[in-house]
Structures are given as C-alpha cells and as structure tokens.
C-alpha cells in the first residue's frame, strides 16, 4: 500500500462534493500512477469535469482529500499544483495571437527572457501551430487550432502531470487522431502522467492504459487494458473469405467449435483515412 501511494501522481480519497442537498460526487476514490495514461470515462454530467475541478482547486470539495505527487497537506497540495498542466477548453485571449497567448501564460508561470521564446517555439512545434498560424489572432482559429492552442498552454513548462478534459470534443477524424497521437507522445517522449476524459468510450480505448468509469458521482470501476482482454476469453481468427470453408473444416477436424462467424467490416475511420489520406496513428 505504501509504495502504491508513493507511486501516485494523483490520489483522491472519498471525495464528496455537494451543492446544497444535491451530491454531484458521492465519494470518489481513485489513483493515477506516475507514467499512466488514465482515461476517465462516463456520460455527460457523470462528474468527470467536477473531479478535475477538485484536483485543480477550482472548486472546493465538501469532504475527502486530494493529493498531488504525494502532497500530505493543503499547503503541499497547493504548491504541487504547479506541477500540473491542464486543458479544459479554449482558455485564451481572442485578441492576441496564438504565440502571444502562449507567451502570456509562459510569463505568468515564471518563464523569462530567452527561455520563454524557446519554450513557446518548442510548444508551438509540438502542437503543430506553425507556418504562420501561430501569429494569427486566436479568435479566428478553427476549433482544431483552438484545441491545439489549449493543449499547448497545458504543456508549457513540461509539467509532470497533464489533465485533458474532453480534448477531442468537436474535432474531425484527423484532429481526433492527431490528439490521440499527441497524448501518447506526451507520456512516451516527455514522461508526463496524463489523465484524459471523454464521453466517447471508443476514443480512449486504444489510448489509455487504465480507465476509471464515472457513474452517478462515483468511480464505478477502475480497469486496465489487461482487464478488458481478460473479460473476453474468446479469440478472433481472421481469414480471407476464400479460405473460410477450408478453415472451418480444419477447426472441426480438430474438435474446435466456431462460436461466432461474421464478415468483418472496414471501420468508418479506416475508410475515411483510406479515402482522404492521413492516418489514425
């Protein structure tokens, strides 16, 4: 248990959040380990965003405790919030350019002089706001560019922990694929612990290592990719249509039952990328 806690990037213990008599969170307990990509899934209104607000201190919890990077008390929790970068939508000044917005937030974080310019250049490159797009006024950005700018703001200063609230909301398939790719890169290349939420389950399925399923104000279940595989002991065998009968007879000869037979469809996403180019990876 001790080493489990010391490996925790974020830990919530029995968090309750009430608005009057209405409990939005009814005792959330969860732990995100260092180096995880943790997917927080649940329908709209389940409490995902409220959980993020508690972690970030943007809303006070009624009871329970939050710990960031092993913080033991409120003072440490407050100090450790500087280790967290977060994306919670398009939070920027529309009359400033993308670059000026990042410069503003970088300066507010205490990055100065030459280091500031270098950091902003690095981030713009990572999120793909280059080739003059970075100098356009942010209010004129497309939704995808706004999401990129918001994520860029979140990764300024290379935080240890990254929180992304519905980062693919409203994006086109290429935008969604790009963000998925970025999330993996943030963990694998920059060593960040990432918590990402979505109400679209399929979106996180191939991105996160662990999942917390939020339902009715609690984490109904925490599962891993391995748990998902173990849930389904059957395996799938894919053969070409021409070999189907032969494959079935070989299996039958060896006493192996075929439980389900069906024709596999090309996913819409694969079809889309085949048609217009690009990739989901």
């Amino acid at each position: 248990m001790g080493s489990e806690i010391s490996n925790a990037a974020i830990r919530l213990d029995n968090i309750i959040k009430s608005y009057g008599k209405h409990d939005v969170l009814k005792g959330v307990t969860m732990q995100v380990n260092k180096g995880d990509i943790y997917g927080l899934v649940g329908k709209n209104g389940a409490g995902k965003t409220t959980i993020f607000k508690m972690i970030l201190g943007l809303s006070e919890y009624t009871s329970g405790s939050v710990s960031i990077d092993g913080s033991q008390n409120r003072k440490e929790l407050f100090e450790n919030r500087s280790k967290v970068g977060f994306f919670v939508g398009s939070n920027f000044y529309g009359y400033l350019s993308g670059r000026a917005n990042l410069e503003y937030y970088a300066a507010a974080k205490g990055i100065k002089g030459k280091a500031l310019k270098q950091e902003v250049d690095r981030v713009l490159k990572v999120v793909g706001l280059v080739d003059g797009k970075e100098n356009q006024k942010a209010r004129g950005y497309s939704l995808g560019m706004k999401q990129r700018l918001g994520i860029g703001n979140a990764i300024l200063g290379n935080p240890d922990i990254l929180i992304l609230d519905e980062p693919t909301n409203g994006l086109d398939p290429q935008g969604i694929a790009d963000i998925r790719h970025m999330i993996r890169r943030f963990r694998d290349e920059f060593g960040m612990t990432v918590i990402v939420s979505s109400h679209i389950l399929g979106e996180l399925e191939n991105t996160a290592d662990r999942f917390g399923i939020v339902h009715n104000g609690v984490i109904a279940k925490e599962i891993t990719q391995d748990d998902l595989s173990a849930k389904r002991p059957e395996v799938e065998l894919t053969v070409s249509a021409g070999n189907l009968e032969r494959a079935k007879s070989i299996l039958a000869e060896n006493g192996i039952d075929v439980l389900k037979e069906g024709k596999e469809k090309v996913t819409l996403e694969d079809y889309y990328f085949e048609l217009i180019g690009g990739s989901a990876e």
Partner: peptide, 10 residues
C-alpha cells in the same frame, strides 16, 4: 477567456 481558471490552476 477563462484565463483566471488557468492562472489559478497553476
């Protein structure tokens, strides 16, 4: 701009 949230969260 919701910049307050960003600054407070930092």
């Amino acid at each position: 701009s919701k910049s307050m949230q960003t600054v407070l969260g930092h």
